[in-house]
Design a protein around this nucleic acid. Structure first.
Lengths: 232, 232
DNA sequence: TCATTAAATTGATAAACATCAATCATTGGG
DNA sequence: CCCAATGATTGATGTTTATCAATTTAATGA
Protein backbone atom coordinates (compact mmCIF):
# COMPACT_ATOMS: atom_id res chain seq x y z
CA UNK A 1 0.00 0.00 0.00
CA UNK A 2 1.37 3.40 -1.01
CA UNK A 3 2.21 5.71 1.84
CA UNK A 4 0.27 8.66 0.41
CA UNK A 5 -2.94 6.71 0.93
CA UNK A 6 -2.32 6.38 4.64
CA UNK A 7 -3.56 9.78 5.87
CA UNK A 8 -7.01 9.38 4.31
CA UNK A 9 -7.31 5.88 5.74
CA UNK A 10 -6.20 7.14 9.12
CA UNK A 11 -8.91 9.78 9.04
CA UNK A 12 -11.64 7.14 8.88
CA UNK A 13 -13.67 7.15 12.08
CA UNK A 14 -12.84 3.51 12.71
CA UNK A 15 -9.12 4.23 12.82
CA UNK A 16 -8.90 7.85 13.90
CA UNK A 17 -8.60 7.33 17.65
CA UNK A 18 -6.35 4.30 17.73
CA UNK A 19 -2.70 4.61 18.66
CA UNK A 20 -0.05 5.20 16.01
CA UNK A 21 1.53 1.91 16.92
CA UNK A 22 -1.72 -0.02 16.44
CA UNK A 23 -2.42 1.72 13.16
CA UNK A 24 1.03 1.03 11.78
CA UNK A 25 0.85 -2.61 12.77
CA UNK A 26 -2.58 -2.96 11.18
CA UNK A 27 -1.51 -1.33 7.93
CA UNK A 28 1.52 -3.59 7.57
CA UNK A 29 -0.67 -6.46 6.46
CA UNK A 30 -3.33 -4.41 4.72
CA UNK A 31 -3.76 -3.55 1.11
CA UNK A 32 -5.73 -0.98 -0.82
CA UNK A 33 -6.73 -2.15 -4.23
CA UNK A 34 -8.82 -1.05 -7.23
CA UNK A 35 -11.44 -3.47 -8.51
CA UNK A 36 -13.47 -3.13 -11.70
CA UNK A 37 -17.29 -3.37 -11.60
CA UNK A 38 -19.01 -6.72 -11.07
CA UNK A 39 -16.18 -8.35 -9.17
CA UNK A 40 -17.08 -10.69 -6.33
CA UNK A 41 -15.10 -9.63 -3.26
CA UNK A 42 -16.40 -12.16 -0.74
CA UNK A 43 -18.62 -15.23 -0.88
CA UNK A 44 -21.50 -15.93 1.47
CA UNK A 45 -20.66 -18.83 3.78
CA UNK A 46 -16.87 -18.46 3.59
CA UNK A 47 -14.80 -17.61 6.61
CA UNK A 48 -13.97 -13.94 6.91
CA UNK A 49 -10.27 -13.36 6.21
CA UNK A 50 -10.27 -9.59 5.82
CA UNK A 51 -12.18 -6.59 6.96
CA UNK A 52 -13.17 -4.59 3.89
CA UNK A 53 -13.44 -0.82 3.72
CA UNK A 54 -15.01 0.90 0.71
CA UNK A 55 -12.78 3.87 0.02
CA UNK A 56 -14.07 4.70 -3.49
CA UNK A 57 -16.86 3.28 -5.60
CA UNK A 58 -19.75 1.14 -4.38
CA UNK A 59 -20.26 -2.41 -3.20
CA UNK A 60 -23.46 -4.45 -3.19
CA UNK A 61 -24.10 -6.83 -0.30
CA UNK A 62 -25.84 -9.91 -1.70
CA UNK A 63 -27.71 -12.80 -0.15
CA UNK A 64 -28.59 -15.96 -2.01
CA UNK A 65 -30.68 -18.97 -1.17
CA UNK A 66 -31.37 -21.63 -3.74
CA UNK A 67 -32.10 -19.85 -7.01
CA UNK A 68 -33.10 -16.65 -5.26
CA UNK A 69 -30.92 -13.61 -4.76
CA UNK A 70 -31.46 -10.30 -3.07
CA UNK A 71 -29.55 -7.11 -2.38
CA UNK A 72 -29.14 -6.50 1.33
CA UNK A 73 -27.40 -3.15 1.26
CA UNK A 74 -25.24 -0.89 -0.88
CA UNK A 75 -22.03 0.13 0.81
CA UNK A 76 -20.66 3.50 -0.23
CA UNK A 77 -17.52 5.38 0.81
CA UNK A 78 -16.53 5.47 3.46
CA UNK A 79 -17.88 2.38 5.10
CA UNK A 80 -16.83 -1.05 6.27
CA UNK A 81 -18.53 -4.32 5.60
CA UNK A 82 -18.30 -7.73 7.23
CA UNK A 83 -16.99 -6.33 10.51
CA UNK A 84 -19.19 -8.62 12.64
CA UNK A 85 -17.99 -11.76 10.83
CA UNK A 86 -14.40 -10.66 11.35
CA UNK A 87 -14.91 -9.99 15.04
CA UNK A 88 -16.66 -13.28 15.61
CA UNK A 89 -14.12 -15.09 13.41
CA UNK A 90 -17.07 -16.55 11.58
CA UNK A 91 -18.50 -16.98 8.10
CA UNK A 92 -19.92 -14.24 5.92
CA UNK A 93 -23.71 -14.12 5.98
CA UNK A 94 -23.66 -12.11 2.76
CA UNK A 95 -21.56 -11.91 -0.36
CA UNK A 96 -20.21 -8.67 -1.78
CA UNK A 97 -19.76 -7.52 -5.37
CA UNK A 98 -18.49 -4.23 -6.76
CA UNK A 99 -21.17 -2.14 -8.44
CA UNK A 100 -18.74 0.37 -9.87
CA UNK A 101 -14.99 0.62 -10.17
CA UNK A 102 -14.06 0.57 -6.51
CA UNK A 103 -11.08 1.05 -4.28
CA UNK A 104 -11.22 -1.35 -1.36
CA UNK A 105 -9.02 -1.45 1.70
CA UNK A 106 -8.55 -4.99 2.95
CA UNK A 107 -7.20 -5.58 6.41
CA UNK A 108 -6.45 -9.08 7.72
CA UNK A 109 -9.10 -10.25 10.16
CA UNK A 110 -6.47 -11.44 12.63
CA UNK A 111 -4.94 -7.97 12.63
CA UNK A 112 -8.28 -6.42 13.46
CA UNK A 113 -8.90 -8.84 16.32
CA UNK A 114 -5.37 -8.34 17.66
CA UNK A 115 -5.64 -4.57 17.48
CA UNK A 116 -9.00 -4.70 19.19
CA UNK A 117 -7.54 -6.73 22.05
CA UNK A 118 -4.71 -4.23 22.49
CA UNK A 119 -6.12 -0.82 21.78
CA UNK A 120 -9.20 0.26 23.77
CA UNK A 121 -9.76 3.35 21.64
CA UNK A 122 -10.04 1.11 18.60
CA UNK A 123 -12.47 -1.14 20.43
CA UNK A 124 -14.62 1.84 21.26
CA UNK A 125 -14.69 2.83 17.60
CA UNK A 126 -15.67 -0.71 16.70
CA UNK A 127 -18.53 -0.56 19.19
CA UNK A 128 -19.77 2.62 17.57
CA UNK A 129 -19.53 1.07 14.12
CA UNK A 130 -21.29 -2.15 15.09
CA UNK A 131 -24.08 -0.34 16.89
CA UNK A 132 -24.69 1.67 13.73
CA UNK A 133 -24.64 -1.42 11.55
CA UNK A 134 -27.13 -3.17 13.81
CA UNK A 135 -29.49 -0.22 13.77
CA UNK A 136 -29.20 -0.04 9.98
CA UNK A 137 -30.23 -3.68 9.71
CA UNK A 138 -33.14 -3.15 12.10
CA UNK A 139 -34.38 -0.22 10.03
CA UNK A 140 -34.15 -2.28 6.83
CA UNK A 141 -36.13 -5.08 8.47
CA UNK A 142 -38.75 -2.62 9.69
CA UNK A 143 -39.12 -1.22 6.20
CA UNK A 144 -39.46 -4.69 4.70
CA UNK A 145 -42.10 -5.74 7.23
CA UNK A 146 -44.12 -2.54 7.62
CA UNK A 147 -44.23 -1.04 4.15
CA UNK A 148 -45.41 -1.97 0.67
CA UNK A 149 -43.02 -1.86 -2.26
CA UNK A 150 -44.37 1.46 -3.52
CA UNK A 151 -43.92 3.00 -0.08
CA UNK A 152 -40.36 1.72 0.14
CA UNK A 153 -39.53 3.28 -3.23
CA UNK A 154 -41.13 6.57 -2.26
CA UNK A 155 -39.12 6.74 0.93
CA UNK A 156 -35.94 5.72 -0.82
CA UNK A 157 -36.43 8.58 -3.27
CA UNK A 158 -37.01 11.09 -0.48
CA UNK A 159 -33.85 10.00 1.34
CA UNK A 160 -31.80 10.07 -1.88
CA UNK A 161 -33.26 13.49 -2.64
CA UNK A 162 -32.11 14.88 0.70
CA UNK A 163 -28.67 13.32 0.30
CA UNK A 164 -28.33 14.91 -3.14
CA UNK A 165 -29.00 18.41 -1.91
CA UNK A 166 -32.80 18.49 -2.05
CA UNK A 167 -33.08 20.34 -5.38
CA UNK A 168 -36.00 18.42 -6.88
CA UNK A 169 -33.87 15.91 -8.81
CA UNK A 170 -32.53 12.49 -7.84
CA UNK A 171 -29.76 10.96 -9.89
CA UNK A 172 -29.65 7.17 -9.67
CA UNK A 173 -26.15 5.92 -9.01
CA UNK A 174 -27.18 2.29 -9.38
CA UNK A 175 -29.05 0.49 -12.11
CA UNK A 176 -32.73 -0.09 -11.62
CA UNK A 177 -32.41 -3.84 -11.29
CA UNK A 178 -30.19 -3.40 -8.28
CA UNK A 179 -32.49 -0.76 -6.80
CA UNK A 180 -35.39 -3.19 -7.22
CA UNK A 181 -33.49 -5.92 -5.40
CA UNK A 182 -32.49 -3.52 -2.63
CA UNK A 183 -36.14 -2.53 -2.16
CA UNK A 184 -37.22 -6.17 -2.12
CA UNK A 185 -39.09 -6.36 -5.42
CA UNK A 186 -38.71 -7.52 -9.01
CA UNK A 187 -37.51 -5.12 -11.71
CA UNK A 188 -40.96 -5.30 -13.26
CA UNK A 189 -42.56 -4.19 -10.03
CA UNK A 190 -40.06 -1.36 -9.67
CA UNK A 191 -41.18 -0.08 -13.09
CA UNK A 192 -44.77 -0.36 -11.95
CA UNK A 193 -44.02 1.39 -8.67
CA UNK A 194 -42.49 4.28 -10.61
CA UNK A 195 -45.61 4.34 -12.78
CA UNK A 196 -47.73 4.51 -9.62
CA UNK A 197 -45.60 7.38 -8.31
CA UNK A 198 -46.08 9.31 -11.55
CA UNK A 199 -49.42 10.48 -10.11
CA UNK A 200 -47.48 11.82 -7.14
CA UNK A 201 -45.20 14.01 -9.18
CA UNK A 202 -42.36 11.59 -9.87
CA UNK A 203 -40.99 11.91 -13.42
CA UNK A 204 -38.48 9.33 -14.57
CA UNK A 205 -36.06 9.88 -17.41
CA UNK A 206 -33.46 7.15 -17.46
CA UNK A 207 -31.36 7.61 -14.36
CA UNK A 208 -32.72 11.06 -13.62
CA UNK A 209 -35.81 11.35 -11.48
CA UNK A 210 -37.59 14.64 -10.91
CA UNK A 211 -39.69 15.10 -7.79
CA UNK A 212 -42.13 17.70 -9.10
CA UNK A 213 -44.42 17.52 -6.06
CA UNK A 214 -42.31 16.53 -3.06
CA UNK A 215 -45.06 17.18 -0.51
CA UNK A 216 -47.44 14.99 -2.50
CA UNK A 217 -44.83 12.25 -2.56
CA UNK A 218 -44.21 12.69 1.15
CA UNK A 219 -47.92 12.27 1.83
CA UNK A 220 -47.87 8.87 0.18
CA UNK A 221 -44.48 7.85 1.59
CA UNK A 222 -45.19 8.74 5.23
CA UNK A 223 -41.51 8.87 6.18
CA UNK A 224 -40.44 8.29 9.76
CA UNK A 225 -36.96 9.01 11.13
CA UNK A 226 -37.16 5.69 12.95
CA UNK A 227 -36.81 3.96 9.57
CA UNK A 228 -35.58 6.63 7.19
CA UNK A 229 -33.04 8.74 9.05
CA UNK A 230 -29.58 7.42 8.14
CA UNK A 231 -28.09 9.03 11.25
CA UNK A 232 -30.43 7.28 13.67
CA UNK B 1 -31.59 -5.39 43.97
CA UNK B 2 -31.16 -8.33 46.34
CA UNK B 3 -27.63 -9.54 46.77
CA UNK B 4 -28.46 -13.19 46.10
CA UNK B 5 -29.36 -12.22 42.53
CA UNK B 6 -25.88 -10.89 41.89
CA UNK B 7 -24.00 -14.13 41.12
CA UNK B 8 -26.38 -15.16 38.34
CA UNK B 9 -26.19 -11.68 36.84
CA UNK B 10 -22.42 -11.74 37.09
CA UNK B 11 -22.35 -15.03 35.20
CA UNK B 12 -23.94 -13.43 32.13
CA UNK B 13 -21.46 -13.34 29.27
CA UNK B 14 -21.79 -9.57 29.01
CA UNK B 15 -20.59 -9.06 32.58
CA UNK B 16 -18.45 -12.11 33.25
CA UNK B 17 -15.08 -10.68 32.25
CA UNK B 18 -15.40 -7.17 33.61
CA UNK B 19 -13.57 -6.15 36.77
CA UNK B 20 -15.21 -6.48 40.18
CA UNK B 21 -15.01 -2.76 40.59
CA UNK B 22 -16.80 -2.09 37.33
CA UNK B 23 -19.45 -4.66 38.09
CA UNK B 24 -20.13 -3.29 41.56
CA UNK B 25 -20.38 0.26 40.27
CA UNK B 26 -22.76 -0.82 37.52
CA UNK B 27 -25.00 -2.75 39.86
CA UNK B 28 -25.31 0.19 42.27
CA UNK B 29 -27.73 1.90 39.97
CA UNK B 30 -29.33 -1.20 38.51
CA UNK B 31 -32.51 -2.94 39.44
CA UNK B 32 -33.98 -6.35 38.78
CA UNK B 33 -37.74 -6.34 38.67
CA UNK B 34 -40.65 -8.67 37.92
CA UNK B 35 -43.20 -7.52 35.38
CA UNK B 36 -46.52 -9.17 34.56
CA UNK B 37 -47.41 -10.08 30.96
CA UNK B 38 -48.34 -7.39 28.45
CA UNK B 39 -46.40 -4.60 30.08
CA UNK B 40 -44.71 -2.07 27.83
CA UNK B 41 -41.08 -1.75 28.93
CA UNK B 42 -39.84 0.78 26.37
CA UNK B 43 -41.41 2.90 23.69
CA UNK B 44 -40.14 3.22 20.13
CA UNK B 45 -38.70 6.67 19.52
CA UNK B 46 -37.86 7.44 23.16
CA UNK B 47 -34.32 7.98 24.32
CA UNK B 48 -32.72 4.90 25.83
CA UNK B 49 -32.32 5.33 29.58
CA UNK B 50 -31.54 1.76 30.58
CA UNK B 51 -30.03 -1.35 29.15
CA UNK B 52 -32.48 -4.19 29.63
CA UNK B 53 -31.55 -7.81 30.30
CA UNK B 54 -34.19 -10.56 30.16
CA UNK B 55 -33.41 -12.78 33.13
CA UNK B 56 -36.70 -14.74 33.21
CA UNK B 57 -39.74 -14.76 30.96
CA UNK B 58 -39.94 -13.39 27.44
CA UNK B 59 -40.06 -9.98 25.78
CA UNK B 60 -41.44 -9.08 22.38
CA UNK B 61 -39.64 -6.41 20.34
CA UNK B 62 -42.27 -4.43 18.48
CA UNK B 63 -42.16 -1.98 15.60
CA UNK B 64 -45.05 0.25 14.66
CA UNK B 65 -45.69 2.60 11.78
CA UNK B 66 -49.04 4.25 11.32
CA UNK B 67 -51.69 1.67 12.08
CA UNK B 68 -49.31 -1.21 11.35
CA UNK B 69 -47.42 -3.25 13.90
CA UNK B 70 -44.98 -6.09 13.61
CA UNK B 71 -42.91 -8.29 15.89
CA UNK B 72 -39.21 -7.89 15.26
CA UNK B 73 -37.84 -10.47 17.65
CA UNK B 74 -38.62 -12.39 20.82
CA UNK B 75 -35.99 -11.96 23.50
CA UNK B 76 -35.61 -14.90 25.86
CA UNK B 77 -33.32 -15.46 28.83
CA UNK B 78 -30.62 -14.65 28.95
CA UNK B 79 -30.37 -11.81 26.48
CA UNK B 80 -30.08 -8.05 26.31
CA UNK B 81 -32.09 -5.71 24.22
CA UNK B 82 -31.56 -2.13 23.14
CA UNK B 83 -27.79 -2.26 23.64
CA UNK B 84 -27.06 -0.31 20.44
CA UNK B 85 -29.40 2.54 21.40
CA UNK B 86 -27.73 2.72 24.80
CA UNK B 87 -24.24 2.80 23.33
CA UNK B 88 -25.14 5.46 20.80
CA UNK B 89 -27.13 7.39 23.42
CA UNK B 90 -29.96 7.43 20.93
CA UNK B 91 -33.64 6.59 20.59
CA UNK B 92 -35.15 3.13 20.59
CA UNK B 93 -35.96 1.87 17.10
CA UNK B 94 -38.31 -0.72 18.60
CA UNK B 95 -40.63 -0.97 21.54
CA UNK B 96 -40.64 -3.86 23.98
CA UNK B 97 -43.50 -5.60 25.76
CA UNK B 98 -43.47 -8.56 28.12
CA UNK B 99 -45.03 -11.70 26.65
CA UNK B 100 -45.02 -13.59 29.91
CA UNK B 101 -44.33 -12.74 33.51
CA UNK B 102 -40.74 -11.60 33.23
CA UNK B 103 -37.83 -10.63 35.40
CA UNK B 104 -35.88 -7.81 33.81
CA UNK B 105 -32.57 -6.34 34.86
CA UNK B 106 -32.38 -2.64 34.10
CA UNK B 107 -29.05 -0.91 34.13
CA UNK B 108 -28.74 2.86 33.61
CA UNK B 109 -27.45 3.70 30.16
CA UNK B 110 -24.92 6.17 31.53
CA UNK B 111 -23.50 3.43 33.74
CA UNK B 112 -23.05 1.16 30.73
CA UNK B 113 -21.31 3.87 28.74
CA UNK B 114 -19.08 4.80 31.69
CA UNK B 115 -18.15 1.18 32.35
CA UNK B 116 -17.42 0.67 28.67
CA UNK B 117 -15.07 3.65 28.69
CA UNK B 118 -13.20 2.31 31.73
CA UNK B 119 -13.16 -1.44 31.41
CA UNK B 120 -11.73 -2.94 28.19
CA UNK B 121 -12.89 -6.45 29.04
CA UNK B 122 -16.45 -5.15 29.23
CA UNK B 123 -16.01 -3.40 25.90
CA UNK B 124 -14.84 -6.63 24.33
CA UNK B 125 -17.93 -8.41 25.63
CA UNK B 126 -20.07 -5.63 24.22
CA UNK B 127 -18.40 -6.07 20.84
CA UNK B 128 -19.23 -9.75 20.92
CA UNK B 129 -22.82 -9.05 21.87
CA UNK B 130 -23.32 -6.38 19.21
CA UNK B 131 -21.77 -8.49 16.49
CA UNK B 132 -24.22 -11.27 17.37
CA UNK B 133 -27.16 -8.90 17.39
CA UNK B 134 -26.20 -7.52 13.99
CA UNK B 135 -25.89 -10.97 12.50
CA UNK B 136 -29.26 -11.92 13.99
CA UNK B 137 -30.87 -8.93 12.30
CA UNK B 138 -29.19 -9.77 8.98
CA UNK B 139 -30.50 -13.33 9.16
CA UNK B 140 -34.02 -12.08 9.89
CA UNK B 141 -33.83 -9.72 6.92
CA UNK B 142 -32.57 -12.50 4.67
CA UNK B 143 -35.45 -14.71 5.76
CA UNK B 144 -37.98 -11.95 5.12
CA UNK B 145 -36.59 -11.21 1.66
CA UNK B 146 -35.72 -14.69 0.39
CA UNK B 147 -38.47 -16.93 1.72
CA UNK B 148 -42.24 -17.24 1.51
CA UNK B 149 -44.34 -17.26 4.64
CA UNK B 150 -44.82 -21.02 4.55
CA UNK B 151 -41.07 -21.53 4.25
CA UNK B 152 -40.43 -19.20 7.17
CA UNK B 153 -42.88 -21.16 9.34
CA UNK B 154 -41.35 -24.47 8.31
CA UNK B 155 -37.87 -23.30 9.21
CA UNK B 156 -39.05 -21.77 12.46
CA UNK B 157 -40.56 -25.12 13.42
CA UNK B 158 -37.35 -26.99 12.58
CA UNK B 159 -35.27 -24.61 14.68
CA UNK B 160 -37.73 -24.78 17.59
CA UNK B 161 -37.76 -28.56 17.26
CA UNK B 162 -33.98 -28.75 17.59
CA UNK B 163 -34.01 -26.35 20.53
CA UNK B 164 -36.63 -28.48 22.29
CA UNK B 165 -34.59 -31.65 22.08
CA UNK B 166 -35.58 -32.90 18.62
CA UNK B 167 -38.20 -35.45 19.83
CA UNK B 168 -40.83 -34.90 17.17
CA UNK B 169 -42.87 -32.37 19.14
CA UNK B 170 -42.70 -28.59 19.30
CA UNK B 171 -44.40 -26.79 22.12
CA UNK B 172 -45.33 -23.20 21.31
CA UNK B 173 -44.26 -20.85 24.05
CA UNK B 174 -45.96 -17.87 22.40
CA UNK B 175 -49.46 -17.40 21.10
CA UNK B 176 -50.04 -17.86 17.41
CA UNK B 177 -50.81 -14.22 16.76
CA UNK B 178 -47.37 -13.27 17.97
CA UNK B 179 -45.74 -16.08 16.01
CA UNK B 180 -47.55 -14.82 12.91
CA UNK B 181 -46.25 -11.30 13.46
CA UNK B 182 -42.72 -12.59 14.09
CA UNK B 183 -42.83 -14.51 10.81
CA UNK B 184 -44.17 -11.47 8.96
CA UNK B 185 -47.71 -12.59 8.21
CA UNK B 186 -51.27 -12.23 9.43
CA UNK B 187 -52.76 -14.69 11.91
CA UNK B 188 -55.09 -15.89 9.17
CA UNK B 189 -52.14 -16.70 6.95
CA UNK B 190 -50.37 -18.48 9.78
CA UNK B 191 -53.40 -20.79 10.10
CA UNK B 192 -53.28 -21.36 6.37
CA UNK B 193 -49.54 -22.02 6.44
CA UNK B 194 -50.07 -24.67 9.11
CA UNK B 195 -52.80 -26.17 6.93
CA UNK B 196 -50.33 -26.26 4.04
CA UNK B 197 -47.75 -27.98 6.24
CA UNK B 198 -50.27 -30.66 7.24
CA UNK B 199 -49.37 -32.38 3.97
CA UNK B 200 -45.75 -32.36 5.15
CA UNK B 201 -46.43 -34.16 8.39
CA UNK B 202 -47.14 -31.20 10.68
CA UNK B 203 -50.01 -31.87 13.10
CA UNK B 204 -51.27 -28.99 15.20
CA UNK B 205 -53.18 -29.41 18.43
CA UNK B 206 -53.42 -26.09 20.22
CA UNK B 207 -49.91 -25.20 21.29
CA UNK B 208 -48.51 -28.63 20.60
CA UNK B 209 -47.17 -29.36 17.15
CA UNK B 210 -46.09 -32.82 16.09
CA UNK B 211 -43.54 -33.17 13.29
CA UNK B 212 -44.55 -36.61 12.04
CA UNK B 213 -42.32 -36.45 8.96
CA UNK B 214 -39.36 -34.23 9.75
CA UNK B 215 -37.45 -35.08 6.58
CA UNK B 216 -40.51 -34.24 4.48
CA UNK B 217 -40.77 -30.91 6.27
CA UNK B 218 -37.06 -30.32 5.79
CA UNK B 219 -37.43 -30.89 2.06
CA UNK B 220 -39.97 -28.09 1.86
CA UNK B 221 -38.19 -25.81 4.30
CA UNK B 222 -34.72 -26.02 2.73
CA UNK B 223 -32.95 -24.80 5.86
CA UNK B 224 -29.58 -23.10 5.60
CA UNK B 225 -27.27 -22.41 8.53
CA UNK B 226 -26.65 -18.96 7.03
CA UNK B 227 -30.22 -18.04 8.01
CA UNK B 228 -31.31 -20.67 10.50
CA UNK B 229 -28.35 -21.42 12.72
CA UNK B 230 -28.76 -19.37 15.91
CA UNK B 231 -25.05 -19.68 16.68
CA UNK B 232 -23.90 -18.23 13.37
C1' DT C 1 -69.98 -24.96 35.83
C1' DC C 2 -71.29 -21.35 32.82
C1' DA C 3 -70.98 -17.08 30.39
C1' DT C 4 -68.08 -14.04 28.27
C1' DT C 5 -64.15 -12.81 25.88
C1' DA C 6 -60.38 -13.66 23.12
C1' DA C 7 -57.98 -16.50 19.95
C1' DA C 8 -58.02 -19.42 16.02
C1' DT C 9 -59.97 -21.17 11.85
C1' DT C 10 -62.31 -20.93 7.55
C1' DG C 11 -64.28 -18.74 3.49
C1' DA C 12 -64.66 -15.07 0.18
C1' DT C 13 -62.56 -11.41 -1.95
C1' DA C 14 -59.15 -7.84 -2.86
C1' DA C 15 -54.47 -6.22 -3.04
C1' DA C 16 -49.68 -6.83 -3.58
C1' DC C 17 -46.35 -9.14 -5.78
C1' DA C 18 -44.00 -12.57 -8.94
C1' DT C 19 -43.45 -14.88 -13.35
C1' DC C 20 -43.41 -15.10 -18.18
C1' DA C 21 -43.27 -13.01 -22.56
C1' DA C 22 -43.01 -9.43 -25.91
C1' DT C 23 -41.45 -4.99 -27.06
C1' DC C 24 -38.87 -0.91 -26.57
C1' DA C 25 -34.78 1.72 -25.15
C1' DT C 26 -30.03 2.07 -24.02
C1' DT C 27 -25.31 0.78 -24.05
C1' DG C 28 -21.05 -0.91 -25.72
C1' DG C 29 -18.05 -2.73 -29.15
C1' DG C 30 -16.58 -3.33 -33.89
C1' DC D 1 -22.74 4.09 -37.81
C1' DC D 2 -24.57 -0.50 -37.08
C1' DC D 3 -25.55 -4.45 -34.53
C1' DA D 4 -25.82 -7.32 -30.61
C1' DA D 5 -26.49 -7.52 -25.91
C1' DT D 6 -28.47 -5.81 -21.93
C1' DG D 7 -31.67 -3.25 -19.29
C1' DA D 8 -36.32 -1.38 -18.80
C1' DT D 9 -41.19 -1.26 -19.72
C1' DT D 10 -45.63 -3.16 -20.51
C1' DG D 11 -49.16 -6.69 -20.67
C1' DA D 12 -51.16 -10.97 -19.26
C1' DT D 13 -51.55 -14.25 -15.88
C1' DG D 14 -50.63 -16.69 -11.66
C1' DT D 15 -49.27 -16.79 -6.76
C1' DT D 16 -48.89 -15.03 -2.30
C1' DT D 17 -50.63 -12.34 1.04
C1' DA D 18 -53.94 -9.15 3.34
C1' DT D 19 -58.57 -7.82 4.64
C1' DC D 20 -63.12 -8.65 6.09
C1' DA D 21 -66.55 -11.51 8.01
C1' DA D 22 -68.53 -15.51 10.07
C1' DT D 23 -67.93 -19.51 12.78
C1' DT D 24 -65.58 -22.43 15.92
C1' DT D 25 -62.53 -23.21 19.67
C1' DA D 26 -60.07 -22.16 23.79
C1' DA D 27 -59.24 -19.51 27.80
C1' DT D 28 -60.62 -16.84 31.63
C1' DG D 29 -63.14 -15.21 35.46
C1' DA D 30 -67.11 -15.30 38.46
Amino acid sequence: MRSDDLPSVRALALFAAMSDESFDTLMQGAFLQWFPPQVTLIEEGHIADFLHVVVDGAVEMIARHGDRETTMAIMEPISTFILAAVLRDSVHLMGARTLARSRILMIPATGIRDAMARDPAFTQAIVWELAGAFRGAVKALKSAKLRTGVERLANWLLVAHDQQGGRGVVRLTIDKRTLAALLGMTPENLSRAFATLRRHGVEVEGREITLAQPSELRRLARPTPLIDDPSL
